[in-house]
Structures are given as structure tokens and as C-alpha cells.
Write a protein that binds this DNA or RNA. Structure first.
Lengths: 370, 370
DNA sequence: TACTTTTAAGTAAACGTTTAACTTTTCTAT
DNA sequence: ATAGAAAAGTTAAACGTTTACTTAAAAGTA
């Protein structure tokens, strides 16, 4: 692995010593020399191509094991021009959703014998949660892409919330992209996201089915893609069930717990019997308010959050919520990418919506049985 | 990036067309040809070695930018025999501590212009939390190591809890290892872990300073390294403050919330006024018990956990706890590894203990001011 | 001016693979 | 036995770099 002088099997050298040296890292040449065959033959065995007899194959294979041979992937990739490697660019690895998405990508890669390399942009650490800094962010994305392309990745999966993905457009046609958990403005870049609308619809369905006609919404920020799609889903469900849509039951929040706390009395005042908070944090705020005011969530009020953060399962009462299909997002994103790579020219889907799972816990009157 | 035919700058070809082709990925040869200089010269510029005039340097540099040149790292690494890349093997990426450790490694790597590749073993997903399966786990570790060594990493950082790290020993002398968040039996492998003992000592100091002489302990499993070291720390603190150590104030748990719940009444019964739970989950269990029994944590009972999980900050009352230096563990592990690589032969520390931070919240009577 | 030193550049071999093209051996069918 | 085909094996050139060595020109020095 470190720089070493070229090694020749000098017959005067004790064979065991020779092994000992080789233990570090044998090359295909040494392997060939050892078996007494050309390197081309060894290469064929290693890539199980035909044109080599069973016996030689066995010989090579066992020699490979004995000499602890490991192919030098740099050399292989250099020669073949393909690395069978995906680049993953994550906006922030330490954000709750990222590891599961990467996990999904990893499983897909493994099943199709690909590798991946990870690039962590650290947006949250660098910029906090502030939006803006677009040009700096773009620079980071671009630099990371350069790095990955230098390593000859066959494609790049971008995991993020903001669509800095647009920076990708400035790259050559030759680079394959897929967005996971976000999407680019460019429809030619496939994106895998979860279905906000359908999730919200099903949440509303659930609450309605439990007899709640007055459903309060602690929504997210107004300009958010998520907020708007979920609102749409809610309206759809209400319409389907012929329940009037009442804008007064909507409170726009900023995704923080504190805001959940402050929205709760407003909605309660307006007579809602259920509250759908668009993330678990705000739901926790509502829960706090109820706990402080002797409103028993799960009995006096049905409450459901969104995201399935760790807190939702450990709060008391345990919070019903919507689980994001993080693993699946990663898995399908990778799957699409690998299809792009392997089936060149075949059209890929532009945007894939994955279903969320509703997790019922105590806060909506668990167990639900209807 | 894909296989392409060799490109020659044919002077009859319109130069702009030539650029357009090159945009995809120029080689050093094409760059040299474009500037009208040898590839050796270009290489020197790119690696800012001397022996090239300012003018040519500028020329090459601007051509590189114009042709969108990116060095092929596979070729470079092949030639140089070093990849300036660390391998990170993580037992499970989705476990709460892993991403921050990787973040730390990443920052260190970046500052010293190294790269890393990540290998996720998925132990938790594959095996659940059960111990055992040692031979399967070792196989996974070994396979991952093979993969990484194939990619010519300069060293491997292992992130895990169990010391499967011992499997590493079967590897050649030539591979550099560092353990993060765990340690190997082999003292020659540097390990970076947090200081359980000192953390527990400081927790005890804190509780004593707040006037609690009867401190209940919800300990972890008996065989655990963490449990025992923390117990030692507690005893040290008590000894220093001449407070008797009472074994009846210790309840051994299994790290689960439920067990915290069950230990609480036992300890309370014995008259403790403070409880130190050895993880946040068990502390939550204690908190549950208190909430159900109208014991006001933070006033009637001081409670502190360990790990600084997300739950601790969002529970009500917010839980005081011990924050693990995850980022620092990653950062120092990487730093040691890079020292090993760059300062060959210089002895590296065998085991580094990093301090935890105590986070005081409401459950110990926040704010503390003494 | 003629020598040496310094600077700037070029040449070519190597890194460890893969693979197209070729040669040799073995097998099959006559 | 022999031609032809199939199978097994070899040769050598590439992939895109780096780098030790060489050469040529420029700059110092006596």
C-alpha cells in the first residue's frame, strides 16, 4: 500500500519469505508470475470471462487467496473509464433524515455491486438554518461535484432540502444526476421525494374517520412547498368527505416548537377537536400547551405530527405522526441512477412520489380500530 | 467520463467546436497540446512544483479553467501509490452518534486536504441490537476492509461500539488503523473515546454541589465497560467529598426506558434525592414515573441522564444530561490517522480520552448558579 | 570570451489494470 | 492422419498521471 520497490520472485529467495512480503499487497503481475501464467489470463479469471480452463482458473483463484490479492481499483477504473461508483452529495449529514437516505442508497448500491462516495456539505453547521447564502452554497456544491467527477463517479445523487440542485445545471450534459428528498427546477433531472399531498390527505382521512369534523392545522411556513402540498391534500380529503374547509382552522407556523405552543390556544379557542401539526416539533408545542392546561391529548384532543422524529415516539402521550419513507427515497434514487448508468438511453421518470406511513400512537386515541 | 475515443486537436477543426467537446473532460495531454507545452510541464504546474516560469504557469492555469480540466484521480493515485484518502468503517450510520463523528472526521480531512470514503456495515439493521453474530460481523468488517484497501486508502478509521476492531488484527502490518468511539484490545491501535469516568465524576460533583448526598444511580448493564468506568468515577467523586458510597443506591438497568421506569420507585423508596441515569432513555423512564406520581423533577428530585439525545432537550422538564464529544472524537481520530500517515515512524498515542460536557437543564433545577 | 550554474522545458518509463489481436494447443470430424 | 474449429493462453498497447532523467537556453562568473 505504501510505495514499495518492484518485487521479483527471485528463485534464490526462500518462497515463504516471498509470501510474507506479498502479504502486504500483491499485484496481478506477481500473481501471474506465481501461478506461471500471463497476466491476461489472470485478469480473465478475476473478471470471470471465458477463455480460460477450469484448472487454471482454480489455480489462479487459490493463489489469489494465498497471496491475499486485492485488485487495485484505481488501476482498474483508470483503464475501464468507469468506476462503478456513485457520488452522494448531502447538504448536511447530521440532519435527521440524511443517514437513512444514505442507508437506502447503500443497500441499492450493494445489491447491484456499485460503490458510493459521500460528500458532506455541512450546510447546517456552516450557515445554520438560515436560507440565503445561495452563492456560497452553490460554490460548495460545485466544488464537491468537481471532486467527485475527478474521482470518475458515474453519477451524482443530491440529498437536500433546498434546490441548490439548480447549480447542477451549469455542469456538462455528461454528468448524471438524481435528486433525493428534493427536486431541481430542471425536469430532466429525476427526483425522488415523498408525497406530501397524499400523506396529508390520509392524515385528514384518519382524523375524519375518528369523528373529528373540526380539524385545526398548524401549518408550516407559507412559502413552503411542503406546506402548500399538504394543504392541498387536506382540502382534497375534506372535499371528498363533504366536510367544509374552514380557513380559520389554519395557523401558519415557522416549524418551531414555540409556535406550536402559541397556535394551540388559538385553534382550541375556535373549537377544533383535532390538530394536525405539520411537523413533530410544532406538535410537541401543542402537546406542551395541552399538558400545561390540563387538556388530555388523545382523549380531549386528537393530535398528529409529521416526520416521525425520535421525540414523537418518546413523548408522553406518544405522538401519532407521519413517517417519511427515507430509506425508500434513497433506495429508489439509487435505483434510478443505476438504471440511467446501465441502460443508457432509456428514459427515466422525472419525479417519483413515495408514500408516507401514518403511525398511530396515543395522541390520536391509540389504539385505533376502525 | 464515459468511454470516449481519443481526441486530437485537428487544426482544421473549428476551435470552438473543440472546446465544446472538451467541456466534458479534458486530459492533461489535451491541456498540454492546447497550451503548446509538454505534459510534464503541465503536471508541474498542476502540482505547483517549481521549474516552470510564471508565464507558462499562468497560461496553463487559465487553459485548465477554460477547458474545464479536472485531474483524473484514479490515474494520479495509481501513479503515486497514495490516495490521500481515509476509509471510514461505521458499524451503523443511522445510529445517533455516527453522523457527528463522521462530520468531525470530514472537517479534519478537509483541513488537511484528505478525502474519505465511507463504508456502512448496517449492524443494527442486520442484527438488531443483539450481541453475538461475531463471526458474521467479522466477515462484514473484513470484506469492507478489503474493499477499502482495494481503493488504496491510506488508513482506516473504525467507528463502533463493540470491539470487532479485533478483526483488524488479522490484517497486514501495513494497514493503519484508528478506532473512534471504541477501542481494540490491541494497544498498538490508537483509540479515541470519551472519558466515562471523568464524566460520571463531574456529574456526581454537580449533584453533590447542589446538596444531594443521597444519589441514586440507574446504571447500565453490569458487564459494560461504560457502566463500570462511570461507577468508578462516581465513587471517586463521593470519596473526594467524603460522602459514603451506598451500593443500595445503585440499580442495574439494561439501558431501556422501561427499566428506568421500574428503577425509579426502588431508588425513591430508599430515600434518594437525586438520580443519575446512565443514559437518556432510562432517565426518561424515571421522568415518566415521576410525572405519573406527581413528583416534580427539578424540584422534588434532581435527575440527570447521559448521551444528550434529542429527547433530552425536548422532554418536559428538559433533561440535564452529558453531551458526548462526538465531533471531537471524529476530529481527533482523523487527526491521529493523518499524523500516522504523514509523520511516518512517529509514535502515536494509544488511547485518547476526551471530556464530555455537562448540560444543565430543568431536571437538575436549572438554572444552576453556584 | 569561455566556463559553470541556474532555470525552463522535454522525454520516456512507470503505476496496475483491461482488452483487442494474435498464437498456440487441444479437440472434432472427416 | 489431417484440416478446421474451438479453446486456452499470450502479447502489447492503452488508460491519465507523475517523476527521474535529460537537454536546451539563459544567466552568472572569471
Amino acid at each position: 500500500m505504501h510505495n514499495r520497490p518492484a518485487r521479483q520472485w527471485n528463485p534464490t529467495l526462500d518462497i515463504n519469505v516471498f509470501y510474507a512480503i506479498l502479504i502486504t499487497m500483491a499485484t496481478i503481475r506477481e500473481l501471474a508470475q506465481y501461478v506461471g501464467v500471463s497476466i491476461a489470463t489472470v485478469s480473465k479469471v478475476l473478471n470471470n470471462q471465458n477463455g480460460v480452463s477450469k484448472e487454471t482458473e482454480a489455480l489462479v483463484l487459490q493463489a489469489a487467496k494465498k497471496l491475499n490479492y486485492r485488485p487495485n481499483l484505481n488501476a482498474r477504473h483508470l483503464k475501464t473509464g468507469t468506476s462503478k461508483t456513485l457520488g452522494i452529495i448531502a447538504e448536511d449529514l447530521t440532519v435527521f433524515n440524511t443517514p437513512d437516505i444514505i442507508d437506502g442508497i447503500g443497500v441499492c448500491c450493494e445489491s447491484r455491486s456499485f460503490h458510493y462516495i459521500l460528500g458532506n456539505l455541512r450546510f447546517d453547521k456552516r450557515f445554520g438554518h438560515e436560507t440565503g447564502n445561495a452563492e456560497q452554497k452553490n460554490r460548495l456544491v460545485l466544488d464537491m461535484m468537481d471532486q467527485m467527477l475527478s474521482k470518475q463517479v458515474d453519477g451524482i445523487i443530491y440529498i437536500g432540502c433546498h434546490s441548490h440542485a439548480l447549480a447542477m445545471l451549469s455542469r456538462s450534459e455528461d454528468t448524471r444526476f438524481v435528486c433525493a428528498y428534493c427536486y431541481s427546477e430542471d425536469p430532466s433531472i429525476p427526483a425522488v421525494i415523498y408525497d406530501d399531498r397524499q400523506a396529508a390527505r390520509r392524515v385528514t382521512d384518519l382524523l375524519l374517520s375518528k369523528g373529528h369534523a373540526k380539524i385545526g392545522i398548524v401549518a408550516g411556513t407559507k412559502d413552503s412547498f411542503h406546506t402548500n402540498n399538504r394543504l392541498l391534500g387536506i382540502q382534497e380529503s375534506l372535499y371528498e368527505h363533504s366536510v367544509p374547509y374552514n380557513p380559520h382552522f389554519i395557523c401558519h407556523g415557522d416549524w418551531t416548537r414555540d409556535l406550536g405552543y402559541r397556535c394551540a390556544p388559538v385553534l382550541l379557542e375556535r373549537g377544533v377537536t383535532a390538530i394536525f401539526a405539520m411537523n413533530d416539533l410544532m406538535a410537541m408545542g401543542v402537546l406542551d400547551y395541552c399538558n400545561h392546561n390540563h387538556i388530555e391529548v388523545g382523549r380531549d384532543l386528537a393530535l398528529i405530527g409529521f416526520d416521525n422524529r425520535e421525540i414523537s415516539s418518546v413523548s408522553r402521550p406518544a405522538l401519532s405522526t407521519v413517517a417519511l419513507p427515507l430509506f425508500e427515497i434513497g433506495h429508489t434514487a439509487a435505483s434510478i441512477m443505476l438504471d440511467m448508468i446501465e441502460k443508457e438511453g432509456v428514459a427515466q421518470p422525472s419525479r417519483i412520489l413515495l408514500d408516507c406511513a401514518i403511525i398511530e400512537r396515543e395522541s390520536t386515541g391509540f389504539p385505533s380500530a376502525n
